[in-house]
């Protein structure tokens, strides 16, 4: 319905602890599409997501999110983020339901002041509804009260995904949503993301899983410190392009090429 791209980077360079991780990236991710970001380990794929979430500051260049300033869009709750599993503190004393509820914390800024001072149970019922819906979408209602430390790997992934869903954001940034997931969970996650795309959301997925990228993504961005290529999955995931991606890095480190 609009021409405004979800994410637009102009000559973006990013450093982490003074080490350059991304240099001179220019790309446009159209709204409502599913983009897979593919590249070898340490190529800066996660860093690209973290610039959008505010975890890394761009050294140079410009970043626009939904046509606006990234920070404003984050505050408006437009950006949902699912980090890699190892980056979460699974020992933390919270339940599945509470974890997913944290996806609503940004939106709670718009609640009345007295609602913000109450426990979620008595506050705005919209938040509980969104959380229940998200838990249902990833088939985790039965575990709502479980401590997150007791979950299996696939369940942890689904909880993190539910948290991103509960935010009902326009843009879903997913860092390796399929890594270490058993086949039934993988199917569930991909189906669910298909539904989100149909609902008009923008999906940006960092992945090592080329078959899934081929099957589901509208476009693929190849990244190795800089943008190697951007286009349709068939074009970008051809042997020739993947070989070009690996040049510069030593190997195509850890890419799952076959199904």
């Amino acid at each position: 319905m609009t021409e405004i791209p979800a994410i637009e980077a102009r000559q973006l360079s990013v450093a982490y602890h003074r080490q350059p991780v991304l240099s001179d990236i220019s790309l446009t991710l159209p709204a409502g599409q599913w983009t897979a970001i593919v590249g070898p380990n340490g190529a800066g794929k996660s860093s690209l997501l973290k610039v959008v979430t505010g975890g890394l500051k761009p050294l140079r260049g410009e970043l626009r999110v939904l046509g606006g300033n990234a920070r404003d869009q984050r505050r408006a709750g437009k950006v949902a983020y699912m980090p890699q599993q190892e980056q979460m503190e699974w020992d933390f004393p919270v339940s599945v339901q509470e974890t997913v509820m944290t996806g609503r914390y940004g939106l709670m800024r718009h609640d009345a002041w007295w609602q913000r001072m109450l426990p979620e149970r008595w506050a705005n019922p919209l938040h509980r509804l969104a959380v229940d819906e998200a838990l249902e979408a990833v088939d985790m209602q039965a575990h709502a009260a479980s401590p997150i430390g007791e979950l299996s790997g696939g369940q942890k992934k689904r909880v993190m995904l539910a948290r991103a869903l509960a935010q009902q954001a326009d843009i879903l940034l997913l860092d390796e949503p399929l890594a270490g997931v058993d086949p039934p969970s993988e199917r569930l996650i991909l189906d669910m993301l298909e539904g989100e795309r149909r609902a008009g959301r923008t999906i940006v997925m960092v992945t090592h899983d080329l078959p899934s990228a081929r099957r589901h993504a509208d476009q693929v961005a190849l990244i190795n410190q800089t943008l190697v290529g951007m286009g349709s999955p068939t074009e970008m995931l051809s042997d020739a392009m993947l070989a070009r991606l690996a040049v510069g890095g030593s190997t195509a480190g850890g890419l799952r090429v076959a199904a």
């Binding site: 973290k50 979430t53 505010g54 975890g55 920070r71 984050r74 505050r75 408006a76 709750g77 950006v79 949902a80 983020y81 980090p83 980056q87 979460m88 503190e89 933390f92 919270v94 944290t102 996806g103 914390y105 940004g106 709670m108 913000r116 948290r163 935010q167 940034l173």
Partner: peptide
């Protein structure tokens, strides 16, 4: 309470939500 909990639990998420 919520910003403090979220910051303690998952600062990256807190940042992504604009805190």
């Amino acid at each position: 309470f919520r910003p403090l909990l979220l910051y303690t639990f998952d600062p990256q998420q807190a940042q992504a939500l604009g805190f």
